[in-house]
Design a protein around this nucleic acid. Structure first.
Lengths: 122, 122
DNA sequence: CTGAATCCCTGCCGATACTG
DNA sequence: CAGTATCGGCAGGGATTCAG
């Protein structure tokens, strides 16, 4: 995807809180774009637990295909959420770790968790 | 969509924090499913400001088509985020308002806003 | 006024096969 | 080991048209 949009919680001053259509400059949309795509939040959860290599992530999420894993990692790196560390030598080893900014997604995921964890009012 | 996934912030006790693939029972995914789709967060923002009718929402978000607006309202109603109030008489008027649970999305959107509003570390 | 039905187009995601 | 190339299915979303 990349198809989520804007919202304005308590920030009436910021002009970005008053957009009338989905726009990439809206902070809410920026975050949703970073989290966008199936498997993405699971990957972040895995990396919140510590650094991981490509194959460690594959092991942790067996149903995730190489291609999609590769896509997600590239997307998250591009979004500034994680860093790639290529280790020299053979076999090639690449280590993925959250950036400081990526670690700040913790509270965001927590907020998402909290809302979803409440009992559905019938 | 409906294609976002799980995450586990600080809840290692909950078994749902350890799923190895996207599943609808994960709280994070429940929330992302509720927010899912283009225009959705903009609609919620609009309704956080107060009740709105169908045509008021159309006015507020001119680039949003009838079909998608209708889809989003149905989806959010289904998700327990908002209520429909059909007013008797002619012309038909339907009023949409956030449920208590819907209003609790405020902090969630705030968390999304906050992360997206921070300067991108270059 | 408030939607539902239909059509088409685009982009996601999975499977498979292949490379440095 | 860590990816990329290619293909196909399917669902999201916009435009238009029709209905209660």
């Amino acid at each position: 995807m990349a198809y989520q949009t804007v919202g304005c919680p308590g920030l009436p001053d910021d002009p970005r809180a008053n957009v009338t259509e989905p726009t990439p400059s809206c902070p809410v949309e920026i975050t949703l774009a970073a989290l966008h795509g199936r498997w993405t939040t699971l990957l972040i959860r895995e990396l919140l637990r510590g650094d991981r290599t490509f194959s460690e992530l594959r092991q942790a999420l067996p149903a995730l295909s190489d291609k999609v894993l590769s896509d997600r990692l590239a997307h998250l790196t591009e979004a500034g959420v994680l860093d790639r560390h290529r280790r020299p030598g053979w076999p090639p080893r690449v280590r993925y770790s959250l950036t400081p900014r990526g670690r700040q997604l913790g509270p965001v995921l927590q907020a998402l968790w909290d809302w979803g964890a409440e009992r559905r009012p019938r």
